[in-house]
Design a protein around this nucleic acid. Structure first.
Length: 429
RNA sequence: GUGGUCAUGGUGUAACGGCAGCACAAGGGUUUGUGGAACCCUUUGAGGCGGUUCGAAUCCGCUUGACCACCCCA
């Protein structure tokens, strides 16, 4: 007896049903066109990579690597992982293919599924999709601003309103360790007033305390030394320049001294883009990114500055869907022509006629399995067809076919060998 | 990993511990060659396992899953 299998997608993973596909297509289409306009080239990297690739960049011992990566050993004994992010794979490809020898910077983009074994909640799934842009080999601050601008424009193009960029600088390996030490000292002297999570963070990931939402931690946070005040000259200048560039293109941004990234490879600029509304707050950041000047070297490549970001496709799609629902502007079917047939002879001829429409690149629908004309016309109506072509026994014998205008009900009989051309004319109107 | 809420056809929902009903969707039809409206018919049912009970969708336990929040967030 066969074991009963659970007919359900794995936790946190979802089918993207036909009705949702247009939203994804739209997001990718906009991303493609804007990324290419800014000189980005598409790249696809494997969905599976060496697990070490991710642990090297992200750092060992964190929840991320230990619990949240889909890692497994292959039959050959390789330790692999489903990609939890794009950046590491992109950096690997950059190094592996010697892109350092190509004109710099190399601007690359990609999109597709990523996997993180997290507990699902609003806007967070175990399999999800991102649109990712990365620039390798450019340290100039103008790139940081441009990355932000590109994502901002993608969202704008998708008709997002009230977008706000949150931005911060988390320094580099010169100034951050120093700041970190100062921060730990500050919090340690007030440890007893911190929440239990923050006391743990103090040893584990002190920068994250700045991100704490606990009421009792807020006053302590407010008095804490701020990163921006302790940046080294280079980072300070870089940050100032980024902000100047953003001012230049009139980008609405907000400095958020509490915006941090816990990972080692991040340097200088970090940013997130939100929709500045109650809904948007709940859903979290639509885009996140920053500069990661250390990653390529950490992975074994030449010292290469880099900057990038990623947009969460599911979150964007959720917003697009909500908007459609509110505006009640359900997109109608694009099906224009329906071919109905009646009798065996007509059915045979319809099959061939259908091919002629395909060659003429005219989109046409059918339901040859149904024999009742009533049923076929009902279907044509349901699809929103503008015209129904009716090929009955009589017409088939006379080498003719009826064109029915579904809106007016007006019908016209034309010769069968003229119909493709005739429909072409009809559709142009 | 922790906590809260929840689980009934494809979807959305109802029913004191006593015949599982309604709406939508889907399929078919209303005399066979003309759609949209109306009407009729049909299909589709309790996540799983156990317990209490004469009797469980309903009460209890476990389990699985979902949503939400926390942790974490590349």
């Amino acid at each position: 007896m066969a074991t009963k299998i659970r007919l359900q997608a794995p936790i946190g993973m979802h089918d993207i049903l036909p009705e949702t596909q247009p939203f994804f297509r739209k997001v990718y289409a906009v991303a493609n066109s804007i990324a290419q306009f800014y000189g980005f080239k598409k790249i696809d990297t494997p969905i599976v990579e060496d697990a070490d690739l991710f642990s090297k960049g992200i750092g060992l011992g964190t929840d991320i690597i230990e619990k949240e990566m889909y890692a497994f050993r292959s039959k050959g004994g390789d330790f692999l992982a489903l990609r939890p992010e794009f950046t590491a794979g992109m950096a690997r490809a950059y190094i592996e293919h010697g892109m350092v020898n190509l004109p710099q910077p190399q601007k690359l983009y990609s999109y597709g599924p990523l996997f993180r074994m997290e507990r699902p909640q609003a806007g967070r799934f175990r399999q999800f999709h991102q649109v990712d842009l990365e620039v390798f080999g450019e340290q100039d601050s103008v790139i940081d601003a441009q990355i932000i601008q590109i994502f901002y424009n993608i969202l704008k193009e998708l008709k997002f309103k009230n977008l706000i960029v949150e931005i911060n600088s988390i320094g580099d390996r010169n100034c951050r360790p120093y700041y970190k030490k100062m921060l730990v000292n500050y919090f340690r002297s007030r440890e007893s007033s911190l929440c239990s999570d923050c006391r743990r963070r103090l040893r584990y990931n002190p920068l994250r305390i700045l991100d704490c939402k606990e009421e009792k931690c807020q006053p302590i946070k407010a008095q804490a030394p701020q990163l921006v005040d302790h940046l080294c000259e280079e980072c300070k200048t870089h940050f100032k320049e980024v902000l100047e560039f953003l001012d230049e293109v009139e980008m609405p941004y907000r400095l958020n001294p509490y915006l941090v990234r816990g990972l080692d490879y991040y340097t200088k600029t970090v940013f997130e883009i939100y929709e500045d509304s109650e809904e948007g707050q709940k859903l979290g950041a639509l885009v996140g990114g920053g500069r990661f000047d250390n990653l390529v070297k950490m992975l074994g490549g030449r010292d290469t500055p880099a900057c990038g970001g990623a947009a969460g496709v599911e979150r964007i799609v959720a917003t697009l869907k909500e908007r459609i629902k509110q505006e009640n502007t359900a997109p109608v079917s694009v099906q224009k022509v329906f071919l109905a047939q009646l009798s065996d002879l007509a059915k045979r001829k319809s099959l061939r006629l259908f091919e002629e429409f395909r060659k003429a690149k005219i989109q046409i629908a059918e339901s040859f399995g149904k024999d009742s004309l009533k049923t076929q016309l009902r279907l044509a109506d349901k699809m929103g067809a503008d015209y129904a072509l009716i090929l009955g026994q009589k017409e088939a014998l006379e080498e003719a076919i009826i064109i029915r205008d579904m809106k007016t009900g007006r019908q016209e009989t034309v010769k069968l060998d003229k119909i493709v051309k005739e429909m072409g004319k009809y559709l142009k109107k």
